[in-house]
Design a protein around this nucleic acid. Sequence first.
DNA 1: AATCGAGTGTATCGATTTGATATGTCATAT
DNA 2: ATATGACATATCAAATCGATACACTCGATT
Lengths: 190, 190
Amino acid sequence: MNVRTLCLGILSFSDMTGYDIRKMAFEGSFSHFCEASYGSIYPALSQLTNEELVTYRDEVSEGKPARKIYSITEKGRAVLLHILHEQPGPDRFKSEFLFYSLFYDKMPPSQFRNLLNKKISDISEKLEGLKGALDCCDHEPSHFAIGYGVAINTAVLDYLKTQVEKFDGEAETPPCPPKDTFKETSHERS
Amino acid sequence: MNVRTLCLGILSFSDMTGYDIRKMAFEGSFSHFCEASYGSIYPALSQLTNEELVTYRDEVSEGKPARKIYSITEKGRAVLLHILHEQPGPDRFKSEFLFYSLFYDKMPPSQFRNLLNKKISDISEKLEGLKGALDCCDHEPSHFAIGYGVAINTAVLDYLKTQVEKFDGEAETPPCPPKDTFKETSHERS
DNA sequence: AATCGAGTGTATCGATTTGATATGTCATAT
DNA sequence: ATATGACATATCAAATCGATACACTCGATT
C-alpha cells in the first residue's frame, strides 16, 4: 500500500492537515500497522490534489500561521473503495531487536538482558496504549484492528517474560531492573 | 537497520552469494523479521567489499555460470559486533490487511469474510513453516527468534479465528472455504 | 522581562530501498 | 525440441525515509 492510499484512507475518516496525517501514521491510531513520513505525505497530498481526489481549504486565523486542511472528495472516496477491492499485500514485520537477538551468544549476558528488559518495557507501554484505545473506541472496524494489535503485543510480552527468566538465571542477577536502566546512546545508527 | 548490516549479519553465519542472501531475507530463516531486495543487496555487497568488511571468491565451474561467493572478514566481524552495541531501533509492523479491515463496514460482507479466510490460511501456512524451523533448529539464538515469530503468529491466528465466527453469523454462510477459494487477481497494486 | 524548549505546521533534499526488469545458464518436465 | 522454473548478477526509475530548515505560538523557567 502506498502513501497516497494511506492518505485517502485517513482523510476518509476526517479532514486533516498533512501534519495531522503524519501523526496518525506515526503515533496515532494507525501507527500500529503503518508508517509514513513528511517526505512522502506532502508529495502524496499534492498529487492527490492534482487528481482531484482530495481538496484543501486554507485556514488563516489571526496571528497563527496558515495551514491547509485537506478533505477527501467524492471521487476520492470512489477511488478508495475501488482500491479496497484488490487483494491486500502481505503483512510485513521488521525487527532490529530480533536481528540483534541472533547474536546474543556473542554478547556479554548483561547486554542481552538489558535488551530484553527494554523490549519488555517498550511493549508494555505500547500495549497499555492499545488497550486504552480499545476501550474508548466505538468504531467497530477500528476495534477489530486495535484488537489485532493487542493480541500480538500480549503474545510478544508473554513470550519475552518467559524467556527473560532463562537469562536471569545466568551469571549475576541485577536487583530489579525497571525503567531507566538503559542509557539512550542514540548516536548514528549504522 | 540497513541492508549493509543485514548482509554482514547473514554472512557471519555462512558464506553466500548475493542471490542466497536475498533468499534468506525473503523466504529463509531471516524472512519473518526482515526483508531486502536485489537492488539494495548488490550495492551493499560492493560497498562492503570496498571497505574490506567482506571479500568474495569467484567460483567458475565447468559450464556453470560464474558466481561470487561472499565471506565476512575479521574486520567485518568486528564492525558487526560494534554495531550490536548500539540500541536497536523499534520493531515495525505494516499491515495492508489491517488497513483494509478499517473499511469492512463499507464492503459487502462476503468480501471481508474472504479477506479473513485468506489471511487465516496465509498465517496458518507461515506458522507451520516456523514451527518446522523451530524443531530442526539447534542454534539457540535462532530458536529464540523463531519462537518469537511462532508466538506472534499463533496469537494472530487465534484472534482471527475468534473473529471470523462473528462475521460468519451474518448473512449467507459459504459452505466451507478451505484454500484456493481466492482467485489471485494480482495485477497492479495501486 | 527575557529566554528556552516543545508543539504545530509546511516543505524540501539526499540517501536508501523497493519492485520490476534485463540478461543468461542450467535442470527438469512436457 | 522446448517451455518452465530455479539460479545468479545487475541496473534503474520511482517510492520512501530520515533529517533538516523555516516560522510561528505558547507555557515554563530563570
